[in-house]
Simulated assay, not measured.
Amino acid sequence: MTGETEKIPWNLRQCLLVLLGMLAAGYGTALMVRFFASWLPLAYRYLLVGLAQGAAVLGGLHYFVRKKNGLGLEVVGLKAASLVRAIASGVGGGLVLFLLVVIVGSLLQFFLPDQAPQPFTELVINARQPRDLAIPLFLGAFLAPVTEELYFRGFLFPVLKARYGFGRGLLGSGLIFALLHLDLVRFLPLALGGMGLAYLYERTGNILTPIVAHATWNTIMILLLYFALR
């Protein structure tokens, strides 16, 4: 389990500050690239934005967890104990979440057949050869799972759970996770996926489990998109 929620030394306001920092870093970098480096290929633009957002999240967590409160990273779920179990649970959970998201997304596609692909999806679709997947895989299978799970599940979810209870905390973290992807059509499957990741963290108490699950889900999706269009 994720630990005693009453001992969490940060609050919703501080969670919001980290979130705003992530958004400011992402949009600020995107604007700078647009005006000063518009010649960059799309993949490198995504890489710069992703790195800026990741740095903002990790910097915010470092400040509120380590510098402000003097705590170790185990308070956001980074634990060496039961490493094999955490990884195995993550792989299995990621497969289940992938299937869930695909099924729900397919049902939505039946009712909304003319939806445009996500920009990140277009990045994968436009890959001409395997080496073109290097940046999408780095972003989707490493950077996003690490930074998003540390924030949404390790930092935000425990605060929501402490304040509103497990069920509402699970729901809230999933909804906010989906909302931040700015994809209305895929909002429901992303919310369900976010709730599933929070449940995995709650069940194991190790943030590595949802990180691996998130990475598994994203990796399968990227590889299927790539090979389905060859």
Rank of each mutant, 00 (worst) to 15 (best):
Q109M: 11
V84A: 15
R131A: 15
V84M: 14
L78H: 07
A134Q: 04
A80I: 07
V57L: 12
A81C: 05
L61E: 04
V101C: 03
A88R: 14
R34P: 01
Y63W: 14
L73N: 09
G92Q: 03
L51N: 09
F110T: 13
P41M: 03
L40Q: 05
F120G: 01
L71R: 12
Q129S: 11
F64P: 05
P119N: 05
V102L: 01
D132P: 05
L108E: 01
G93M: 02
R45G: 12
V101M: 14
G93D: 02
A55Y: 05
V102E: 02
P130F: 05
Y46S: 07
G140M: 10
A116F: 01
G90P: 02
P117M: 07
L112T: 13
R66E: 11
S38V: 08
R34V: 10
G93N: 07
L47H: 05
V33N: 05
V76Y: 00
A86W: 04
G94E: 00
A56H: 06
L95V: 14
A37P: 04
N69Y: 12
Y46T: 04
A43V: 10
A56F: 08
S38P: 07
A144R: 04
R85L: 10
L42M: 12
Y63S: 05
P41N: 06
T121M: 07
V91Q: 00
G94A: 06
F142W: 12
F111T: 10
F110A: 13
Y44L: 14
S89M: 06
F138L: 15
I87T: 10
L139S: 04
F36T: 13
L51M: 12
V91L: 15
T121R: 08
V96D: 00
H62G: 15
A80T: 14
F98S: 01
L42Q: 12
G54E: 03
L71N: 06
L58N: 01
